[in-house]
């Protein structure tokens, strides 16, 4: 038998066994909203402060800035850390101002991974990405990598710089996925990222920088305040 017919045989056998059991009435669909804790706020200064405190608790660095000043913050960060090569995706909301912020440090992620792998793994100091939204309850970032920003951009370089707009905060992951109707269409890879990668596999001792980024810097753009202009 070929592997495919073998799999079809197994499928039929498994489903037949499941169907042979006496049927039981399915319980009503669970009411998720009722079982979760009441939401906190998803916007406002208190929510931003909660988000930042929580993210810092997970060892993310959070730098608050404004829609006009974030490129300068990025430049200062690159200088302070001595970054030589910072990778970013073209055509994002950030892209237009990245050359101004990063100058000769800037590298664009515009080749397929297979060709780019050697440099991605060995010659990039940081990856910079946009963020779809933040989750206040846990201090988490929601990333939806796409054709412009590949998933390895926030994964392989040792430093991940995420530019988050305060206007995109949501109280909880559940609220966010319901409000944005995620179930109607997910990207190939949706991610919730909370702090840098870590492990406690040796004697329960916590170490940051396991296989993913060793550091996470969140540039938090306060686009939610009056009089500070349009979202970055």
């Amino acid at each position: 038998m070929t592997p495919d017919t073998e799999s079809m045989r197994a499928r039929a056998a498994i489903l037949a066994r499941l169907r042979a059991a006496p049927p039981v009435a399915a319980p009503a669909s669970p009411d998720v909203a009722a079982g979760l804790a009441a939401d906190g706020a998803g916007s406002g200064d208190a929510a931003v402060a909660d988000f930042a405190a929580c993210a810092r608790g997970w060892r993310a660095e959070v730098i608050e800035t404004t829609p006009t000043r974030w490129p300068a913050v990025l430049r200062d960060l690159a200088v302070a850390r001595g970054l030589r090569s910072v990778l970013a995706g073209r055509d994002t909301e950030l892209a237009a101002r990245l050359p101004e912020a990063l100058g000769a440090r800037l590298r664009w992620y515009d080749e397929p991974l297979a060709a780019f792998k050697p440099r991605l793994f060995d010659a990039i100091d940081a990856g910079i990405t946009t963020v779809r939204g933040g989750v206040v309850e846990t201090g988490s970032l929601v990333l939806w990598p796409d054709v412009r920003e590949p998933r390895t951009l926030s994964l392989v370089p040792p430093l991940h710089i995420a530019v988050l707009c305060a206007s995109t905060l949501h109280p909880t992951l559940y609220r966010m996925m319901v409000r944005e109707r995620w179930a109607d269409g997910l990207p190939t890879n949706a991610l919730l990222v909370t702090g840098p990668s870590k492990t406690a596999d040796i004697q329960r001792l916590l170490v940051y920088g396991a296989h993913g980024p060793k550091q996470l810097v969140i540039v938090l753009v306060r686009d939610d305040r009056d009089g500070t202009g349009v979202p970055a």
Binding site: T138, R151, T188, N189
Partner: peptide, 18 residues
């Protein structure tokens, strides 16, 4: 929460680089 919640929906789509 863990560092990553990774939701994979299908293989690489047209135009994606990885």
């Amino acid at each position: 929460v863990t560092t990553y919640l990774n939701i994979v929906t299908g293989p690489r789509r047209a135009g994606e680089k990885d």
